[in-house]
Amino acid sequence: MENTYYNPADLKKFGNISELQPEMGRKFFDYYGEVFKEGALTEREKALIALAVSHAVQCPYCIDAYTSDCLEKGADENQMMEAVHVAAAIKGGAALVHGVQMMNKIKDLTM
């Protein structure tokens, strides 16, 4: 067992998750591959979405992988940072919008 929770070398071993459950692993990676193919969205747009989500879910493996992928797909630093701000805005907004729930509760509880 590592003495840290995250090891950059583990990213390359992602495929190994199939060892303990081959069928589900295969289905997941087939699906994953399909999702990132060019469709109504370009591969670059999908990589930028993935980068933003990586930040929202705060996954260091995903940030590593999708920073490289965005560069490889031809995105530039401005686009990538804007994508991260979109993630930040949604995460911040998601926290703040619950302020309405808080305000409703305040109304319920106060004179």
Partner: peptide
Amino acid sequence: YNPSGAFLPAGQKSLEGE
């Protein structure tokens, strides 16, 4: 187009459009 860094190039057709 050559990547400006230690990464591989993008798909040619898609990047050409951009």
